[in-house]
Design a protein around this nucleic acid. Structure first.
Length: 527
DNA sequence: ATAGGGTTAG
């Protein structure tokens, strides 16, 4: 073209986006910029931000953002959504939120809301994702309803939070909206059930999928692997290969993960060594990390170390590699390995704090108290404070939170007794891990009654409000809900709410819950 | 004529 115009340029940029060449898309934008007679329009900016998202390039993205501000085209909803998505994909959640907040005047739609929810969900901020979903549902200025994109993201947030009840309610919204046949939604549900501990529901979802993809199989293989069913996971992998669905690198990670967590060491090494020729997947540092973890768990720590040394990788992936070796060293009481892994971890400049803590603990276990103490001092001088670890689990209506290293709440000693009993049984069955669950850094303790109550009521409130999805006329109160007939699980979910009924929460919208007034529940059969 | 959002590992 002698004189390409803005449409020609944008078409080319978007073409490179669509064919997985975001780098080239950006360089086309650069070339376009050199032509002083053609200025980018909304379409161009949206495409370019998409390219930056794919590359997670916030440095370039920021400079283009500046250009956008000068162009005066920021008020376009599509452009702003792509901008906010770009910041989210670059892990700059705060800036993404600023863009989102600034959009209040120019019209946010379901895409902008989804982008922000996804930004939270993909950056380990699940509670904020759910919270925003709640706000969206309560928002009276938009007629948009959650669609398959938003629900997939919300379900993924539920998975990362391990909240089965929230996930089930989200499933209800999916059913109600008729999105269950969407493959992405189905996969996110499968993953959610698996991560929230319900392998049977995960499998049910898997069986409803009519056209399987590499992702649905990979998710199910991972689900079985996580639940300790290594053989079944491998069987599913064979089934997938027989169906001529080509495994990708994530599938092989799932397979290695399955081997690692079921003690199938020989099989795991076999997969690692044959994956190129058999499946055409070249092992990358993540696969090696998985195998290092596998060898380490099984006590073949020296082999794990030897393998780790052959992998040249730094940054975040390097930290994961040496972190896996560090766990192995710690599990089998190998101070030498812990020392070596910690050194490399600290060199990797990532997760430095946990490496210091592990090293210090290893010295302490080996009796090197002075080394341990001097390391701790070094940490404090460097301003390294380890974040307190916390786990939680949902049992029936209650959320139980457990904090590392805090025994103060276990007054009756019940939990300690239980763990000791578990350890005894594990030893009887030939468990060879040398470190005790009590004396290692993970001591699991319940929170005290008062705090528990607080947590539970907090979650009730979130559950009720986050999914303000009740089939009632506008202006009703939740109190009226008791007149509804609900299936057991919907009722379970809402039983939690009864504690706060007294506050008479006003139902802001209608038609948003999967339990219908006539008592039929679309999920009843499923659960 | 050209534009934005979702799922799978650790």
């Amino acid at each position: 073209m002698p004189e390409p115009n803005v449409v020609s340029w944008t078409s080319v940029i978007s073409g490179f986006n669509d064919t997985g060449q975001p780098q080239t898309a950006l360089s086309m934008f650069q070339q376009m910029h050199e032509d002083e007679y053609v200025a980018p329009n909304e379409f161009t900016f949206a495409s370019v931000f998409k390219a930056c998202s794919a590359l997670a390039e916030s440095r370039i993205g920021k400079s283009i953002h500046a250009r956008l501000e000068m162009s005066g085209r920021r008020s376009n909803t599509v452009v702003s959504s792509s901008l906010l998505d770009m910041y989210g994909k670059c892990n700059d959640v705060e800036t993404a939120r600023r863009v989102f907040d600034s959009m209040i005047g120019c019209g946010r739609n379901v895409v902008s809301w989804t982008s922000m929810i996804t930004a939270y969900a993909q950056n380990a901020r699940g509670h904020e994702a759910i919270e925003l979903f709640r706000t969206f549902n309560a928002d009276t200025t938009t007629l948009d309803r959650p669609n398959q994109f938003m629900l997939a993201s919300v379900i993924s947030a539920c998975s990362s939070l391990g909240r089965l009840q929230w996930g089930k309610v989200a499933h209800g919204v999916v059913t109600h909206g008729g999105y269950e046949t969407n493959h992405v939604v189905a996969t996110s549900l499968l993953d959610m059930y698996a991560k929230c501990g319900s392998l049977s529901c995960a499998e049910k979802i898997f069986l409803t999928i009519c056209r399987h993809s590499v992702i649905s199989y990979t998710s199910m293989i991972m689900a079985k692997a996580k639940h300790g069913l290594g053989e079944a996971a491998l069987q599913l992998f064979d089934e997938m290969v027989a169906k001529r669905i080509r495994p990708n690198y994530v599938t092989l990670l799932a397979v290695l993960h399955a081997c690692s967590h079921s003690g199938l060491v020989t099989e795991g090494l076999g997969y690692l060594n044959s994956m190129v020729e058999k499946y055409g997947v070249v092992p990358d540092p993540r696969h090696y990390t998985c195998v290092v973890d596998m060898l380490g768990r099984f006590g073949r720590v020296d082999e794990a170390y030897a393998l780790a040394k052959t992998i040249e990788v730094g940054g975040e992936q390097g930290a994961l590699l040496w972190g896996a070796l560090l766990s192995a060293g710690r599990l089998h009481g190998r101070v030498d390995i812990v020392g070596e892994a910690s050194k490399r971890l600290i060199e990797s400049n990532q997760q430095v704090t946990s490496a210091y803590v592990a090293l210090s603990n290893a010295y302490a276990v080996a009796g090197g108290w002075e080394d341990s103490e001097s390391l701790r001092l070094e940490m404090r001088r460097g301003g390294n404070v380890k974040e307190r670890a916390c786990s939680w689990i949902e049992i029936k209506d209650s959320v139980y939170a457990f904090h590392a290293g805090d025994l103060s709440c276990d007054e009756s000693g019940e939990i300690v007794r239980f763990i000791k009993d578990l350890e005894k049984r594990m030893k009887e069955r030939g468990h060879r891990g040398s470190s005790s669950m009590i004396t290692s850094s993970s001591v699991f303790v319940d929170v005290d009654e008062e705090a528990k109550e607080e947590i539970v009521s907090l979650h009730c409130e979130r559950l009720a409000l986050a999914f303000g999805l009740i089939h009632l006329p506008e202006g009703s109160t939740i109190r009226i809900m008791n007149n509804l007939r609900m299936c057991r699980d919907c009722h379970e979910a809402f039983k939690l709410i009864s504690g706060i009924v007294e506050r008479e929460i006003v139902v802001r919208d209608v038609n948003r819950f999967h339990c219908f007034k006539d008592g039929s529940c679309t999920c009843r059969d499923f659960w």
